[in-house]
Amino acid sequence: MTNRLPIIKTHKLFIGGKFPRTESGRSVKITDAAGNTIAHTCHGSRKDLRNAVEAAAKAQPGWASATAYLRGQILYRLAEMMEGKRRELRAAVELQEGIEAQRHQGSKSEVDASIDRVIHYAGWTDKYPQVLGCANPVAGPYHNFTTPEPVGVVGIVCPDDAPLLALVSLVAPVVCAGNSCIVLASETNPIPACILAEAIATSDMPAGVINILTGFRDELTPHFANHREIAAIHAAGVTAEQRKTLDLGAAENLKRVTVRDAIDWFDDNTCESPNWIEPFVEYKTIWHPSSA
């Protein structure tokens, strides 16, 4: 009896709620530690990034104007879908042996920690404006208050370690605040990101709010930095050179650039905080006279 020939999946990009192939026609072979081909992923291009930004820009106002309650419920729904794909995600995360030790902390697997992180930020949607905003006691007859608003379209560059947990930790605070994003997944193991895309597509997350590209940081980082419709960057795992490139994006259109260094992605005290939402909001201060 012959062994069944497995289907080797080609994971596609996730743009505007759809799964297109890269317009560049390039693909990347993903192998396990033994060198066996497990899957193929798209080698995303500048054009793919531009398409993703377009989708993100289109989706962002609607996502921002959704009620905080609804955004929270949708993020919770995403966690539910991830829970359903728990085994698949776990297999994807553990595809490449050797760095497995980093994928667990205590008894909590990377997948479980990722789901719990989404749950954490699902609960922030209707609370961070209270924690980050305030009323200002100005010296005069005015109502004056400051509220955080989403900055807009955010570019997210993921590190290679913790391919699922780092991604979720970078994306959740951005999205919970009403931003949309374009994510460049881990270079060495983008498969958990591709499976996450399938979970997002079947959650109630509006198309275009989260877009996921696979490809190479060196190639795509400059295009993230230069794109004028990207208002902010959330990155980790970048080289000093790539960091400088991203910073130069600030000179292009005053992008707000946040780069995370040496993060323990399993550490809730580090990764779960309104201070991770804060770089992706703009403060609006409103004055109104108060007199009869």
Partner: peptide, 14 residues
Amino acid sequence: IVWLNTFNKFDPTS
């Protein structure tokens, strides 16, 4: 900064 029915108001707390 959005000034409603006023303009160019400043305060250290704002």
